[in-house]
Design a protein around this nucleic acid. Structure first.
Lengths: 160, 160
DNA sequence: TCTGAAATCGTAATCAC
DNA sequence: GTGATTACGATTTCAGA
């Protein structure tokens, strides 16, 4: 699959906001019939543009009321030390996201837990047991102004 | 709906990893038939445990190769200044996530862009036009070790 | 690459148990 | 909760433009 046209991009954008939209609805919005839309979706899936479909849960309702961003600096910055930290930290179930960053800390982790007690358990019994940890700083989320899984696609509106 | 039992929790966990799993597959995994599984999913949706279903796209393939975490400190910390920043920043399309944080910066933004040129445009023409900005620090993502939308649910495995 | 019809498959709703 | 039936809607396939 070589490149996306405007219709592909619009399909992706609609699906990344609502994956339950029916092919018929998509077809109507795009001014097409079901068949080509269905074919395009399948191609987008097979070519890997769509990685997967997931349900987004209500964080509070499933008991993960607390989100923390934990930044980590390692003591040693060899390639193997960086790799080792990454490989081990992502195995901790509370770690939803793990990024290696530029700037004055090495890793940023997003942690989902029930409460402060669970964060303490994460910090003391899980994160701190990893080798080579230098300094750790924690930032708790006070409020979530936006939390979007959809990427900001560039849709050329004149193309309709 | 008052509380989740082990079966509900397992349904949620399976759906937050793969929303395309069929009711039949869920039923088989849970040792039930389609009917009760179908009823439970509907209840979970109606009670708001499942907020929505989305497609997760391939970031590189859709041209958002660069992710930045941008931390912002405001000059003034009145309630109205904080609220105003949050309300305005979330309207910027490149801002996928916006959190108000404890600790030594006020907001953390996750920014998805094509490249450094687009980040510069975001910073110069969008973020910096918001009122009350004190200091801004940017951390670019060098590698994404884990990027999960699923919350770490506690599944009591002994319950099967 | 599209349209439109036909066949297939999954889901939702209903029922007796 | 099971298991069967039904009806509906979505998806896939295919002929044809």
């Amino acid at each position: 699959m070589e490149g996306l046209d405007q219709i592909d991009t619009q399909i992706l954008d609609l699906l990344q906001h609502d994956a339950r939209v029916t092919t018929k609805e998509l077809a109507d919005k795009l001014g097409l019939t079901i068949t080509p839309v269905s074919v395009r979706i399948k191609k987008l899936e097979e070519a890997g543009y769509i990685k997967r479909y997931v349900a987004i849960l209500d964080r509070d309702k499933v008991g993960k009321a607390l989100i923390a961003f934990t930044s980590v600096q390692l003591r040693e910055h060899t390639q193997s030390a960086l790799k080792a930290f990454e490989q081990k930290s992502v195995k901790i179930k509370e770690v939803m996201e793990c990024y290696r960053l530029t700037g004055n800390f090495d890793f940023l982790l997003k942690i989902a837990i029930r409460d402060m007690r669970e964060y303490n358990d994460f910090l003391m019994n899980k994160l701190s047991t990893l080798p080579n940890i230098g300094s750790v700083q924690t930032y708790f989320v006070l409020s979530e102004g936006k939390s979007e899984t959809a990427y900001p696609l560039d849709i050329n509106l004149s193309a309709r």
